[in-house]
Design a protein around this nucleic acid. Structure first.
Lengths: 177, 177
DNA sequence: GACATATAATTAGGCGCCATACTATATGTC
DNA sequence: GACATATAGTATGGCGCCTAATTATATGTC
């Protein structure tokens, strides 16, 4: 059986019906997207029982083991999302008792975000669990296979907008086989 | 340079700092997710100038070349999303003049959704463009490399929740090298 | 010291997706 | 023909993400 998603099947069917060239390429691209979606769904399903999303988990994780906390601004930078998004995530996490916002004593514009005991505990155990799970996803592949896969992914990535930008800066290309 | 996303870099840094095992696996998984995100971002950027999202594009595409139209219910099924989601997408597409809802004559619960001339034109040209773009992403890989990649993706996919479900039904496993 | 400018966080509003609840209509059964 | 049940579409409210605008505070410069 194929492992594509419904929407991709529909697109692929129609592409084939129209006798477009390169449907093999397209199928492969959809397989890649389907795999990523499946991983994201699994991730969400693992976190949902704790009332956490992937974004919230990342914040928990960034704050974990930092008794001095971090500002929303720093969290945004490290998480790679906007400060507005952080505000929303913090609202949820604070509501559920994972952390608290504290006023900064020296700069009254700033806040310091610190985990509660609940947040510390949840962060620590979830992180361990999460790392093991992700690692296990790829665990069946041999070292050679992993290198191969990484190289192939990199080459495809260079055709994307993000990759093209990177290409202008450095001449790095994945190995060919 | 690496091609991971900010959030994954943060997770990976911390994982290494804690001396967790299997960080290579984890990096590879993140590379896969980063590539899928890059593709999704490119897709969104291509459609945005037309005031379309990926979901809307799919509807345009499903309706294209069907003078009799489809019902929201059928659209939901083929797109693999809920009917509620379809309602939202149709609202936007109707507002922007790509299509119209028409009352069904025989069953008054039903609607028929048909593209406008604008919708037909946009659908046709975008579909062509889109198919060529996606195909080009993978176009650098040889046939062998494509088969290899597909097999590797499939094996990882079987470790996901979606894959595990599928496994119960059929014994299909990707080829090993 | 006043004022332009930068920075921190938030708010407001939008999008796409979901689950759940609701309304209108159809249908099968007695 | 009445009534339970199913179905079609929508409304509501939530989440995570975004951009742009707003408010409060800090800072550099004249």
């Amino acid at each position: 059986m194929t492992f594509l998603e419904q929407k991709h099947l529909a697109l692929l069917d129609e592409t084939q019906r129209r006798g477009q060239t390169g449907t093999g390429n397209i199928r492969l691209c959809f397989e890649l997207l389907a795999l990523a979606s499946a991983i994201d769904r699994d991730c969400a399903a693992r976190l949902a029982p704790h009332r956490l999303s992937e974004g919230k988990f990342l914040l928990l994780f960034l704050l974990q083991g930092r008794p001095d906390g971090l500002s929303p601004h720093e969290l945004a930078e490290r998480a790679g999302v906007t400060r507005a998004t952080i505000t929303g995530l913090l609202d949820g996490l604070e509501r559920d008792g994972f952390l608290a916002r504290h006023a900064d004593l020296t700069d009254r514009r700033k806040l310091t975000v610190r985990l509660s005991a609940k947040g510390e505990t949840a962060g620590r155990s979830l992180f361990q669990e999460h790392a093991e799970w992700i690692s296990s996803l790829l665990g069946d592949l041999s070292a050679d296979e992993q290198n191969l896969l990484s190289g192939l992914l990199r080459r495809v990535w260079q055709k994307t907008g993000a990759g093209a930008k990177e290409n202008n800066a450095s001449g790095d290309t994945g190995a060919r086989i």
